[in-house]
């Protein structure tokens, strides 16, 4: 499997870009797409999912341009949008059968697959409950189930862990790791820990641009030597945050342990090993940063 995004741009008007000159080559495995809100992650995923066309550039799946042949992608796609609705009248199996029919699936195997998905996603006890009545977490699991209906070769998941509890996030991550053996899994999130645990490759976006791409270790290296920790008085935290890029702060009785990013070490600080989250914050706070 090979997905090639070649200098794709999504232009809304003369001065406004959703995505700008975005290039990436993706093979089987999990690619985590990280970026702050509004970075353009969903726009990229929508273009890959054929929901939207790039203003320029090309997207090729196994060498076929999906701008010209969108059904090549659609036939093999599993897509979970960030925000989606369901028909409130339908029960989970009816809704999955409906989406299955849209994907061109049928036969006894579809019924068996729907049943198995309902079982694995703990929806089988609510198989007679109309979707208008289910909780947000259950609706999200129905969304995940529909994306897995057709054994997709390309699985696009836009913020998939919303509504899942911590245990479910771990199990879902493990499932994706297994699925990604011979498939392309694109996973977008603005929560670094969702990506950190499972992604083989990471792409970081900011303001419509790709600012970094590579294995997690490579990305982390970009922030090496720029992450520090220090203890400061509680009262000084607000001022410190105004002057420095703070990753996290932990309060204790009288003082506060602050982890921050800076080009130079500040007095009473010590350098620490950079994590993916540090690199993410470092890269997205510097809009001029460009991929080499």
């Amino acid at each position: 499997m090979n997905l090639e995004l070649d200098t794709i741009t999504k232009k809304y008007n003369a001065n406004k870009y959703g995505v700008h000159d975005f290039s990436l080559e993706i093979n089987a495995g999990i690619l985590g797409l990280l970026g702050p809100n509004g970075a353009g992650k969903s726009t990229v995923l929508k273009m890959i999912a054929t929901l939207s066309k790039p203003s320029s550039g090309s997207i090729k799946l196994n060498g076929k341009d999906i701008r010209k042949h969108p059904n090549v992608m659609r036939k093999t796609l599993g897509y979970l949008p960030q925000d989606f609705g369901v028909y409130p009248e339908l029960t989970p199996p009816e809704f999955l059968a409906y989406i299955g029919a849209m994907k061109g699936l049928g036969g006894k195997a579809l019924t068996l697959r729907v049943d198995a998905l309902l079982e694995e996603l703990n929806l089988s006890t609510h198989r007679k409950t109309p979707l208008g009545q289910v909780s947000g977490g259950m609706k999200q699991r129905v969304g995940i189930a529909q994306a897995l209906l057709n054994d997709p070769e390309v699985l696009i998941l836009d913020e998939p862990t919303v509504g899942l509890d911590p245990e479910e996030r771990l199990r879902f991550g493990a499932l994706l790791s297994d699925l990604a053996y011979d498939k392309i899994v694109l996973l977008s999130s603005h929560i670094v820990s969702d990506i950190e645990s499972i992604a083989d490759q990471v792409a970081i976006m900011n303001q419509g641009n790709l600012v970094a791409y590579g294995a997690q270790e490579e990305i982390t290296t970009l922030a090496a030597g720029k992450v520090f920790e220090t203890m400061i008085a509680k009262q000084a935290v607000t001022d410190f945050k105004k002057q420095h890029t703070v990753v996290s702060s932990y309060r204790s009785d009288a003082s506060c342990k602050v982890r921050y990013i800076a080009d130079k070490l500040i007095e009473n600080s010590q350098a620490v090993t950079a994590s993916l989250e540090d690199a993410f914050i470092y890269l997205t706070k510097q809009p001029s940063y460009a991929i080499s």
């Binding site: 036939k75 049928g106 036969g107 195997a109 579809l110 068996l112 697959r113 198995a116 897995l148 057709n150």
Partner: peptide, 9 residues
């Protein structure tokens, strides 16, 4: 669910 592969009809 991976045991049941629905046919593309």
């Amino acid at each position: 669910f991976l045991q049941h592969r629905a046919a593309q009809m």
